[in-house]
């Protein structure tokens, strides 16, 4: 079972404590929103859960394995094979076309270029961005950028999708499309989704919300 769990996690940046002994558990297939005011530790929790960062104390478990003790290489491999990650503003490689951006994870995984490109095109089609496949990021609108970023996160069919303010830079309607794309694909693969957001309307797409305040949960609210 691909349960994701943080136990008594603490993380500080210099003198600011981002997380102070936070515990949270996310079941497989769940769609969970992490909300809270700015500076409450939302993004840090996502970084710890996804193995991007290691907490100073506490444990992070994924699929019955403790991942915060793994070394960087092992965590990188885990992220590449099991997780998909979407950030605000897409953060695509500016010099590559949309389809090349989407194909990157497969290329890094050692797949051939033609195969990777074909699969990437299919995913762009799925994301409704087939028409901008050969455009570079600078030529895309915010919504298109984000769809390409989502396609890039989905191409490896991840078990868990992490999204950090995926609609932060978009207007409501464009944001809605990106979210339904992300969540639709997740439901098809019965993937877990963890969304960090400050937008309550985005949080309403989730089955459950984890409210953070000053680095701890303010009470989990079950659906």
């Amino acid at each position: 079972m691909n349960t994701l769990e943080a136990r008594q996690v603490e993380k500080a940046f210099g003198r600011t404590h981002a997380l102070r002994g936070l515990s949270a558990k996310i079941e497989p297939g769940e769609i969970v929103a992490i909300t809270g005011p700015s500076g409450s530790g939302k993004s840090t929790l996502l970084h710890c859960l996804s193995g991007i960062m290691r907490p100073e104390t506490g444990e992070v478990h994924y699929a019955g394995e403790r991942i915060d003790t793994l070394d960087e290489a092992a965590r990188t491999k885990l992220r590449r094979e099991h997780f998909g990650i979407v950030f605000q503003f897409g953060r695509l490689v500016p010099e590559l076309t949309a389809v090349e951006n989407v194909a990157l994870p497969l290329l890094f995984d050692g797949h051939g270029r033609e195969e990777a490109t074909t699969v990437a095109r299919a995913w762009l089609e799925e994301a409704g961005a087939a028409d901008v496949a050969d455009a570079r990021p600078a030529e895309l609108s915010g919504g298109q950028l984000q769809r390409v970023a989502v396609a890039r996160a989905l191409i490896t069919s991840p078990k868990v999708i992490f999204a950090d303010e995926p609609t932060g830079a978009l207007d409501s309607v464009a944001g809605e499309r990106v979210l339904s794309l992300l969540l639709g694909a997740a439901r098809v693969n019965s993937a877990t989704v963890v969304i960090v957001t400050h937008d309550n309307r985005v949080a309403a797409y989730a089955d459950r919300e984890i409210v953070l305040r000053d680095g701890v949960t303010a009470g989990e609210v079950m659906a």
């Binding site: 339904s180 309550n200 949080a203 309403a204 989730a206 919300e209 409210v211 609210v221 659906a223």
Partner: peptide, 20 residues
């Protein structure tokens, strides 16, 4: 406030589901 938040969000979930 916390209880009310959860009630509000529950209602928002319903509305979102209906919308989708």
């Amino acid at each position: 406030l916390l209880r009310q938040r959860s009630a509000h969000l529950e209602r928002m979930r319903e509305l979102t589901a209906r919308k989708s």
